[in-house]
């Protein structure tokens, strides 16, 4: 297995570029669904100690909506799309054609709509991933929960924790033009998947 600590600058750049195109696809898909412009930042690619990951999303006790997908294929990974609670409600209002501010809890239909957003984002992201790496990746059915960010991240971190003390995180932030919606999209490859991805990218 590639030592995660020894990724070269070029390899990190390649991962960032994959993240960039993947997130670009996702942002376009999302903006088509909600009919609003979606901006995104340049993806951050970083190896971070596991215990620091909750701080990337506003602290372990920040209330967020998390949409989680397991990614199957040659490079098994996890996808986690996190939205601050307020953002998730705003997105539901937008999707359901309700006036903004109407949604203040999630019913079954709302959850289903948000999970579909998770599906769309992940599909678009993984398509780009395939273009770069020729690795086919299939997302599972999404699962959704609204709770403390730290608690939701446990799902991903416990998996990584069996293999090491660090997570490779490819993270993109989305922001809608009216500032109502922001979210963070994480692709977290399983430790063993990193080598497969790096090899497929073909960068030393």
């Amino acid at each position: 297995m590639t030592d995660e600590l020894n990724l070269s600058a070029n390899q990190l750049d390649a991962l960032r570029e994959i993240g960039n195109v993947g997130a670009g696809n996702s942002a376009t898909a999302l903006s088509q669904v909600i009919n609003r412009r979606i901006d995104m930042n340049v993806p951050k690619v970083a190896l971070v100690p596991l215990e620091v990951v909750p701080d990337l999303v506003g602290g372990p006790d920040a209330v967020v909506v998390g949409i989680f997908l397991r990614v199957y294929g040659k490079a098994p990974s996890n996808i986690l799309f996190l939205l601050p609670q307020k953002s998730a409600f705003y997105l539901v209002d937008t999707l359901m054609g309700k006036p903004h501010g109407e949604t203040n809890s999630l019913d079954f239909m709302d959850e289903s709509a948000l999970m579909e957003i998770g599906n769309i984002l992940s599909g678009a992201y993984l398509n780009a991933f395939f273009t770069f790496t020729k690795i086919t990746m299939l997302p599972s059915i999404p699962a959704l929960a609204m709770d403390m960010a730290g608690a939701l991240l446990n799902v991903v971190l416990a998996q990584l924790g069996q293999m090491g003390d660090q997570a490779l995180v490819i993270e993109t932030e989305f922001l809608s033009e009216d500032d109502g919606i922001n979210g963070q999209f994480f692709l977290v490859p399983d430790p063993g998947s990193l080598e497969t991805i790096i090899k497929a990218v073909g960068v030393e």
Binding site: P54, G59, P60, D61, D147, M148, A149, G150, A151, L152, L153, N154, V155, A158
Partner: peptide, 17 residues
């Protein structure tokens, strides 16, 4: 972390932990 009174020890956002 360990300590003694009057401290309180806290940990935020446990899921499966």
């Amino acid at each position: 972390k360990v300590g003694s009174a009057p401290s309180t020890i806290i940990s935020y956002g446990l899921g499966s932990c």
